[in-house]
Amino acid sequence: MKFNHKHLLGLETLTREEIELVLENAAGFKEIFTRSIKKVPTLRGKTVVNLFYENSTRTRTSFEIAAKRLSADVINFSISTSSVAKGESLLDTVHTIESLGADFIVMRHSCPGAPLLLARKCRAAVINAGDGPHEHPTQGLLDAYTIKEKKGRFEGLKVVILGDITHSRVARSNIWALTKLGAKITVAGPNTLLPKPFEKLGVRLCSNLQEAIKDADVINILRIQMERQRANLFPSIREYTLLYGLTEERLKWAKKDVLIMHPGPINRGVEISQPVADGEHSVILEQVTNGVAVRMAVLYLLSGGEENE
């Protein structure tokens, strides 16, 4: 099977088979990590540009390592050091980057749809590394990969996404991937952070934590941001933690073998308590490792899925 996409803009537009293909390839690449030389020549001579309009050390670094392990040349283009700060438009920046010979542009932007604009206007393959609250496809894929690795299946799994769903690209990409793969999704958090129309996607909305995580196989916890309090979406971080902070006691409401996931960076003691973050159920650091494998798979598949040479 071939991966028939030029760009990776979101998971909404991928089929179940295509998602499974990425996960299979990721498993192959992960195997490389156990070798003493963690590098393959797949993308030798190709250039990957990380174009980040928003700060993100984790995702940028993960893409950088993924590309380097595939032997690509990597350039990091971030807002503070670029002419973007001087008022250059996104399209002018991109045309400049293209002229430098980029084969892949990995883009992070605060505006939903920005990578789609980019994909319409340039020849390079575009990978969405997060566009506002819209999508973060490689995060969705690495979360799916992690679940598959730990649980061995998706069918019938009860996955809870807990936190600020409204403003979360991670939630959206997770929902697209996991529902296609057969999991049952519950989104949980205060009403003000749960988009009501998600019910139309077959997602359950629940603002009571105990009900939400009852019998959960997986709890994916999202970072809660201070600015949402300022917008009156909840009264205070303190109250958020009182109602939705995941502690060891509350974890007992879920299944015994529940997986605790978090896309990071985590607010210890806010959305997740210290013992839960570091506890036996937590796979937070494995998610980071898997992120590299998944991103290698994505770069590989977008390049045509063949070794160059």
């Binding site: 939903p112 749809g113 506002g132 959206r172």
Partner: peptide
């Protein structure tokens, strides 16, 4: 604000 908007994240 509605279904489409909730998907797009705008």
């Amino acid at each position: 604000e509605g279904f489409i908007q909730s998907l797009l994240g705008l």
